[in-house]
Structures are given as structure tokens and as C-alpha cells.
Amino acid sequence: MRLIRRTVVLVRGAGLLRDVIAVASAVGVVGASFGAMAAAAGVAPELTIGMSLLVFAGGAQFLAVGVIGAGGGIAAAILAGLLLNARHLPFGLAVGAAFDRGWATRIVGSHLMIDESVAFALAQREPERRRRAYWMCGIAVFVCWNLGTALGVLAGGAVGDPNVLGLDAAFPAGLLALLLPSLADRVALRVALIGATIAVVATPLLQPGAGLLLALIALAFALPLPARRPGRRP
């Protein structure tokens, strides 16, 4: 029995690893395009590589380099990047329990908090699987993003447009597949649809990050929260 159970766990772990590798390798390609784009925009190689290591937030990095490239100035670039990254605060409240087992895991685990690791963690039901999914995804994406960035900086213009490979569609589709189990709950589905609509309508009118944060208004449509398992007592 124990052997069977262990095999089942291994097989499940292998499925998770396979999914994590799929996401991380796609992230690597996007990292390469970030490196090439930053090099083309005239950002020094050590700054581009330092940015991927220390900021480790793809959307904010593209945005910051883009804002400076468009002549927006450094202050505007930092503000825009931080606004886009403000979503990590509620992320941390939601998945903090998955990685925070003391100061060391808190310090390292917080840096690995990205959309992918949060989505992978949320897609798991059991706490132990949630913890493993968070770390596996966070570490794999961190390695691939930084290797990709370094390669992109070195290769420069030789890196093609990742949109030709359809990677721009692969990311939202992958995140959606990870989010689906959480949407089985009717309240979650309702607020998610309302939030997505708010963000899509608001983003063209505002800064990219502001549209995302406005989506949190949708939480008002979760009220009143139905009692968990009505009629049952713990």
C-alpha cells in the first residue's frame, strides 16, 4: 500500500513538474526578448541583468524600460512599475501561508512571488502541495527568467519577436488554466468576471497597474459572503 501511495504521489509530483517546466521555459524565451529589447533601448548589460535578478517582475520591467524609452523619465518609470506591482500585496495576504514558515522562507519566498507561482499555488487544494507548487514554480521561473535575460542581452538583435511563436497568447491561457479550479465557486466566478471586465475597460483610460487595482471593486459583488457550509458545525 505504501509503495502504491508513494507512486501516486510521485506521478502527481511529475505532473506538477512537467507543468512548471512548460511555464518556466516559456518565461525563459520572454526573458530573452526582454534582454534583447533592453539592449536595443540602450540599457547597459549589467543594469538589464541586475533588473531581472532584483526586480524579477516581467511586466514592470518591460513597462519601466518602455516608459524611459518613450522619454517618460526615471521617476515615471519607477512609479508605473510599482503601480503594476502593487497587486503583490494582496497576493501575499492570499498565498503567504504557502511559503512563510519563518524568517528565511519569508525573505526568499517573497521574492519568488509572481503571477505564475501564485496561480500554481492557488490551483492546489492541499497545503503541502500548495507549498511545493509555489516553490517549484518560483525557483524554476526565477532561473529561466534570468538565464533568458542574460542570453537576450548577449544575443541582442538575434532574438526574434516572441509573438511570432504565439507566446503572448500562451501566458494568459496558461494562467487561466491554473485559475479555473478556483472559479468553480460561484461567488469567485462572479467577482472574477466583473473584475476582469472592470480592468479591461479601465486600463486603456488609466495606467496599466491602476486598471488592475480598480478590478478589486468587484469584491463588493461578493457581499454578503455566504456562510461556509451552512448548517454544519466544526
Binding site: V118, L122, P172, L175, L212
Partner: peptide, 27 residues
């Protein structure tokens, strides 16, 4: 606690929708 979980779901859904429909601030 449940609201925080829902907040993460809403933000991820909003992120998926905007990265599907919008590049920067353009459709």
C-alpha cells in the same frame, strides 16, 4: 481571509483579461 483569497482570484482574472486584450493601454 476568504476576501484575500477572492482578491487574489480577481487580480489574476483581471491580469489574464488585460494581458489577453490590451498591450500597454491599447487594445
Amino acid at each position: 481571509v476568504r476576501y484575500c483569497g477572492l482578491g487574489a482570484v480577481v487580480l489574476l482574472a483581471a491580469f489574464i483579461a488585460t494581458s489577453t486584450m490590451i498591450d500597454g493601454t491599447r487594445l
